[in-house]
Structures are given as C-alpha cells and as structure tokens.
Nucleic acid binder design. Structure first.
Lengths: 220, 220
DNA sequence: CACCGGGGTATTGTCGACAGTCGACCGGGG
DNA sequence: CCCCGGTCGACTGTCGACAATACCCCGGTG
C-alpha cells in the first residue's frame, strides 16, 4: 500500500470547502451575510480560520466583501450568467486543446468514470454536479497550473449560478441530458485521440450550444 | 469639494500589494521562503494580516504553499511562460471584444494616458510595467467582474515572470518598443471605434506575435 | 568513521481578547 | 407627528500567546 502522506490539517481549507458546499446547497441564499462569529460558532472553531476561508472564497468570487468588510453571497443576474459563459468559452477550449496534447492516462480514467456516472445519474442536481466535474476534469487534464487557478474562479461562479437558478437549471439539465452526455463523450474521445484542434472546437461548440438554449440570450 | 469617502483600512490588502511589489522588485527571488514572523517584523504588524495577505497571493499563484504550510516564491520555467501566454491568448481577446462593445469613455482616457506614458517611457522596466498596465486597462474596460478575477491571476503571473526574467525582458522590450506601442495604439483605436471582432483579432495577434519572438518556442 | 538520538530553535495553525466602528433602537424635544 | 441625540449590541480588524511540529546541530555509540 502506498501509504500516502498524511496532510497537515488546515482548518481554513476545510472551512472554505464546507462553505462552498453550504452555499451551493442553498444554505446561504444570495445576499446573505456571512458573519464570522456566526460561522465560527456553527463550525466550532475560532474566527481566524473562518476569516482565512472567507478571503480565499472572495478571491474566487464566491463571496463579496462590502465596504465595511462584511462578506455576502453575491446575487447573480442573467447578465452574470452570460458573462460566466463567455469566460468559459474563452478558457475551456484552451484547456481541451492542452489536454488532448498532454494525454495523461490517469486523467482519462477520471473522465471516463465521470461519463459512466453521468449516464447513470438520476437527479438533475446530480447531473449538474457531474457536468461541472467533467469540465473540471478537462482543466485538470490540461496540466496547466495557471489555467487551473483561473478555472477555480469560474467553477465557483458556476456553482453559485447552479445554486441560485436551480429550478431552471434542473429543467434544462433534464431536457439536455442526452445531448450533454453525447457532447461530453465526443470531447472525451477526441481528447484521448490527441486531436487538439478538434477538441478545442468541440469544447467551444459545446458551450456555445449551451448559450443558445438560454432564454433571452443576447448575441455574444 | 466632493469629499470622497475615506476607505476603511485593511492591512492585509496593503500587505498583499506591498509583497507583490517587493517580489516583482526582486526583493524575494524565486524559491525564497516568506516566513510570517519575518514579514510581520519587517512590516511592523502582527502575523494575522500577513497570513491573510499570503493566502490572497496564493490563490493568485504569486506564492506557493509547500506541504508544511510555508509560502515560497514560485520559480518559473520557460514552459510556465508559454503556459501563461496561452492563457492570455485565451482571455484577452475576449476582454478586448467586451471592451469594444461596452465602450466606457472613462476607461478610454485611462488607456489613452497609458499610451502617452508608454511613448514617453525611458527605462525598459517602466516600459514593461506600462505594457502590463495597458492590458489590465482593457480587462477593466471589459466591465466583467469575473474576467477581472481571472485576470488577477494572470497579471500576478506576468509580474512574476517579469521579475524573474528581467534581463531578457528588458532586451525584448527595448527591441519591440515601437511595434508594441503601435499594436497598443491600434487596439485602442479599434476598441474605441466599437469594432469588437477586429479588437478581438488584434488582441490575439498582438499576443501571438509576442509568442513568436520568444526564443525556443514550441508550436502553440 | 558512519549512524542514531536528543535538545534547542524557528515556524505554523489556532485561539481568545481588545479597540474601533457601525447600525438598531429608544426616548425626548420641536 | 417628525427629527435628533444617546445608548446598546454586534461585528470587524488586529494583536499577543500557546501548543504542535519539523529542522538543525551536536554529542554519543557501534
């Protein structure tokens, strides 16, 4: 057994992840104030790691600091959603292209497992989670640390969006399930085959298609 | 007199900016450990705001935490540079396109002033700083908060790169000064004219050209 | 000479505490 | 009735302190 090294615990990191999940789960709706004493009390820790977690989330855009230092959950509008998709259309084709060239077998089994899970997923929430995870996997497979840093921002924004527009997302996911799985499968195969140009194009098309089905979408 | 509101001070934010500048100025070379007590002592503050500043810099990739929690200045390789440029080629055309559509007059005077300063700049370091600032200005002009979050990552990486490859950058800047100014001027005019497609194309070309003059560049 | 164990030092992660500040609330005066 | 000042409570920003841990050097031992 490899006996992977034990990670020195860092409460701030755990708290950051927990807060992300809580926000996505709808525990803190848009506009809610995340006061440090309240979070510290609920989590059973002191304020210091809570503060650090909030700062981390702020640089990823998952909470906002107002002029008085209070952190709030940002509330997204439809324009924000289009904005996020625009960035994804810029970043993800690059990630797909790099992933196709890097061709890391370890990442492939990750992506393949995700595809299987997606085919077996039942609830729309599960489907949405797996969808985001697939795109995350491609970014990881790109092997670019900086792309991953940027993606962290985007991913948190997508999570936020999923949390705030859940009903509409659920409907869309249900409706687009088969096409999404098919698009993912095509991207996976293309990346595995090493065809960077085509992988880039597929990623762009996949996201642009998504943009097309959004109601009231302006030209982008 | 407008009496603009006084900003509530936040040491962590100041420290983050100061550390950025210090790293760029070469005060902490690649691989240097940034110990919290040392920084706190030098800055005359306690460790808490220093920690928060380091966390902020870490999410932007300007420092790295090793497995023991110590923060170090990452050392960039040539591959990293190509990686950074690849992300810029993905992000900045989008920013230019948005900026052309948004057409914020306030941002225009900012960009124009930058152009003038660049024409008057004397040292290569100054030139490099203004170059980055111009690209920052375009991202700000895009009006996308999320694009700006991503750009924060990229900008810090570019700064880091400038700090670590200063000699080569200086030579390049000197050599490419006129073409860079011309390219920036063209981008500025195109953005002001509102031609989003052409602005996007110019931004891409500008960065791709830069990629071309780097020594030993692989195909991207 | 090579190897091992122990003490000292430095650093991180976390905690509780304090000052400053802001908003909410209440009572009094015009 | 409306406006104003004062008080209370809550929250943020910052600080110093403590335990835990890892590194470094040094002496002892086979």
């Amino acid at each position: 057994m490899p006996l992977n090294p034990v990670r020195r615990v860092n409460l701030a990191h755990d708290i950051s992840a927990q807060l992300s999940q809580a926000i996505v789960a709808g525990d803190f709706p848009a506009g809610a104030v995340l006061s440090e004493p309240m979070l510290a009390k609920r989590l059973g820790v002191s304020r210091a790691p809570v503060r650090e977690a909030l700062i981390e989330l702020e640089t990823r855009g998952m909470v906002e600091f107002d002029e008085r230092g209070r952190s709030r959950v940002p509330s997204l509008t439809h324009d924000d959603l289009v904005d996020i998709l625009g960035i994804r259309i810029a970043l993800e084709p690059r990630a797909a292209s790099l992933a196709a060239r890097r061709a890391d077998p370890l990442a492939f089994i990750d992506l393949e497992r995700n595809l299987d899970a997606m085919r077996a997923a039942r609830t729309p929430t599960e489907l949405a989670r797996l969808d985001t995870a697939f795109h995350s996997g491609i970014v990881r497979a790109s092997g670019s640390r900086r792309l991953h840093l940027c993606w962290n921002v985007v991913e948190h924004q997508v999570d936020l969006w999923l949390a705030q527009m859940q009903s509409r997302v659920d409907a869309l996911c249900h409706q687009l399930r088969d096409t999404t799985v098919a698009a993912h499968a095509a991207m996976f195969e293309t990346i595995r085959s090493g065809d960077a140009l085509r992988a880039e194009e597929l990623a762009r098309k996949h996201l642009t298609d998504w943009l097309g089905v959004l109601p009231g979408t302006p030209v982008v």
